[in-house]
Design a protein around this nucleic acid. Structure first.
Lengths: 214, 214, 214, 214
DNA sequence: CATGAATGAGCCTTCATTCAT
DNA sequence: AATGAATGAAGGCTCATTCAT
């Protein structure tokens, strides 16, 4: 059995310069992952890409995994913020339109740095970050959950399923280079899922009010 | 630039004993990935788990990556066979029922060894195996494509999207432990996607004949 | 076909400490070759003999062959310097005496660490270092060439042949333990060769001025 | 300290087929050394080049070094025979001519397979074969010694020195590609050495009778 | 005897981490 | 605080040798 990875940041970088250094390291890490993949992700490479020395890197992160975790948190927070904003904007329009907005947000996020997104998604599980309270996806799921609850979809899996449907579809499409009309395809997948689940007599979700249908 | 990984098998194990050894190595590799993850996947561990020496391992595989590739091929072929059978069984019934059969097949496959499935999926891209003509997902996509074409869904992305929707959903659900009613959720996601895409006036797919609707 | 060996040094050790480390590694390598031969020449042994860790070794040399190459360069330069000095000292006296001085230099160099000299000579060819412009033997040959040209021996092979005659004779003598009077034997071999080649009506060398004879 | 290498042949191959197998192995070894060098010289490669299995190889040779030793003996004997013949033919003519014949023999032998000759020469020392009574070079030296004694050169080093002078010169010339007129250069080196050594008032060799002078 | 699959010690190399400067 | 040289455990791979068939 391997010891659980150390992922806690070493210190709260309150000062401005320290904050900048941390940001530089995370961005260096992101760039390495994008260009070299998981294989090229080593502390020397990250330090080099960040323009700092390994020593400095260890000043701010207790180990390699902590850098990974920091990067995952950074990306998750960025996505959460964008999604939060999108969800607010989507609270008025009819369901189909609202879903389209959220789908577009997800596509935009993942398409910006596809290789990075995919690696972080994979690593997130290895690090067991999904268990953390202040977790990455937890925030995303919460936003989606709230959005869906408002619309009457309150099944226990609706938010999580929607998230993974979208993520899987987008990820696969980017890999294949099949990006045409991707937002619409994502929206169709999520919306189709929600409709069928609520239409069915199953135990999953209560029927939304008819007015909400597409 | 990293050199492309070596993934071709070293020799064709025609004899019985050799075939057994190769099988043992692949199963050893699978077990290591399941229990130790990608981090614990090293040639000594694989050889140990397979009950053979490292030397034997290198007799049949030119390197570490080739073992990974071999395992990916093995799993892909197994899935392809199961899916092929399911697709034949599903050629008669109405669409919804047919999709349910395929969904159940996918769930069964991925749930059998979830961690393994996820890691292989990730590694497949790193190794660039998806480019191979005779490869893993290509076969799966072909089966799906044929199935969908019969039903009138011939969009360029239908098969690929369906595959990734299902994979993403199943993978995420297994990770969260949200397995209740999973087959139905997968079927709903795929079916919902297909219906909405064909219903829309977009450029994606021609409307299937009305009789095919749900 | 084997890939050409990597022999370029990894970094230029400008600082004092680094220069010391590099020197220690080369001397460690020399000692291993002397005591254990080519068979015992492995990176761990070299690092151990040098009193550094393998990691440090790889900090300065990109691989095993580069250490060998570094050692070859070190020895070649040392010999070149001694020979250069000897050649200057030998520019005045009559030919026989001058040759004796050079022969003594060669004997002294090779007898100091005979096993090392022999192994380096062998390895130099494997590494293909003799092709380098600025290299090992090139310098030695150039010095000899200049010396011989001054004396009127300008055949295309005079310098190279003299070098190899001396090297072969010294090497063989040291191996047999037949060191008595070795300098004189070497001088005789070289001088005898030069005289006969210039005396002959062949196409090799122009006759030196009569005053230069013996 | 390393154990002394095992070089004794495993059994006297009396039968015809066995003798053929041994010959095949030695020739396979020779070809590997010529094409791949010492680095590519491994038992599998040799067995492959010889067209036999590793198992058979170990049937006739107790280990890798024994193959090397066997090859060294084979080449030494072949050279000895040629040289012996040449020495007989050279017993009549004047010294210069006789030396020319021997030099040509040496050049022919070494030029036939230069890389092989050089590697065997190097390995011969590692294996400590020169100590053996029935040794490789011993025979060659004996032939030369007899030849030189007949001519009045009986110094203790004459034969050995002549051999190494010739070997070094030929080897170096082949390496540089400077083969023009090589026989004459070799003859000049050897003859020049002998003349000067006997002319000198030193302790090395008695003056040969004046009639023998070139 | 021949075969060649299997073995595993040993060697090359990388990289996370420390620490003297 | 920052630097980057040094460390050494860990892991990929080769190849001499054995032995079951």
């Amino acid at each position: 059995m391997a010891a659980p990875p150390v992922v806690a940041p070493r210190k709260r970088p309150a000062q401005g310069r320290a904050r900048q250094t941390v940001a530089a390291i995370l961005e260096g890490a992101a760039r390495i992952l994008e260009t070299e993949g998981l294989e090229g992700f080593n502390t020397n490479a990250v330090a080099g890409a960040a323009g700092v020395s390994v020593g400095s890197l260890y000043q701010y992160f207790p180990g390699k995994d902590a850098i990974m975790a920091g990067l995952i948190r950074r990306e998750a927070q960025a996505f959460r913020e964008r999604l939060d904003e999108a969800a607010r904007a989507a609270s008025g329009p009819p369901l189909a339109e609202a879903i389209a907005v959220l789908a577009a947000t997800a596509v935009a996020h993942q398409a910006a740095r596809p290789r990075l997104a995919r690696i972080l998604d994979f690593e997130e599980r290895r690090l067991g970050l999904s268990g953390e309270a202040e977790d990455a996806d937890a925030g995303v799921a919460a936003i989606l959950s709230a959005f869906l609850a408002e619309r009457g979809f309150s099944g226990p899996n609706a938010a999580g399923d929607a998230m993974h449907i979208a993520r899987g579809l987008i990820d696969g499409a980017l890999e294949r280079g099949a990006v045409e009309d991707l937002e619409r395809r994502v929206a169709a997948a999520v919306l189709g899922y929600l409709q069928l689940m609520s239409a069915a007599p199953g135990q999953e979700a209560p029927s939304p009010s008819p007015a909400e249908r597409v």
